[in-house]
Design a protein around this nucleic acid. Sequence first.
DNA 1: GCGAAATGTTAGACAAGGCTAACAATCTGC
DNA 2: GCAGATTGTTAGCCTTGTCTAACATTTCGC
Lengths: 151, 151
Amino acid sequence: MHDDTHDVLPLAGDDRSPDLRVEAFQGVRAARSRELAEDYVELIAELIHTQGEARPVDIATRMGVTAPTVAKTLDRLARDGLITRAKYRSIFLTEQGRALAHECRHRHEIVLRFLLSLGLDPETAERDAEGIEHHVSERTLALFAAFVARN
Amino acid sequence: MHDDTHDVLPLAGDDRSPDLRVEAFQGVRAARSRELAEDYVELIAELIHTQGEARPVDIATRMGVTAPTVAKTLDRLARDGLITRAKYRSIFLTEQGRALAHECRHRHEIVLRFLLSLGLDPETAERDAEGIEHHVSERTLALFAAFVARN
DNA sequence: GCGAAATGTTAGACAAGGCTAACAATCTGC
DNA sequence: GCAGATTGTTAGCCTTGTCTAACATTTCGC
């Protein structure tokens, strides 16, 4: 629509210190490595709440991955102290896992409501929120919440 | 084993069809697999524009990763038809790469300006935009652009 | 135009996150 | 209470994305 190849302008927003860029990319990489864990604990909390327990098979169907993938990921979550599990038993969140789940749910809710407030349809809002929620800083989240509150 | 039909509490926003959730997660995974390529072509385009050429060393410092990581990633981009490269030479975008870079830059700009319009400080806006831009649908982007335009 | 510095590449390691195939345990319906 | 279905686990493979160490090439300073 605008700019690009014939754009001899400042290229708005790119002449800032490289350190900031590096930091931004490193932040994104860090966020990416937390994403899966966040999605899992959020889903596990929800399953425990709505189904009474969290079973690997339900996680697999809801995440759209296979059972072995879930098993491996759950092992990592257990290693990282977010869940506890025993062979052939359903999954429990640790205190830490519960805290993370709660925080994620909170963020998800705000992002979702924000997108809906902007006028987005519910389906797209849900899809976008799922991706965006992991990349929103506290500060941005506060602004989203404020926007929702006054609209 | 358990009756899943007793959800007395709506648990706002989670009683929607599981298919939608699966789709959302699959979309996020797809987006995640595109992220790196998008960041690279965007950066390469910018380097060509501002420095006259895109060298691996500049990509490495700006992305905050080591040279071998860049080399391997560039090989993948070349394999995927986004760039062309020759040993010990600088990097060029293919037509396809240029198109992707342009689209990414456009998205990045809109997300960034949107966050700034909301009242976010420039540093945080830049960091969040870097993460969010890959997870924003066309529809959401349009809403962001509209918001920027009227604020 | 040569040697040192800068840059680029290759090799090999490792973790994450995905898969299929094969096997083990549990649960369910007679 | 047992057979078959469902669920869970293990083993092994693949790709991505990161790293370090070692080596190759190019560029720069003089």
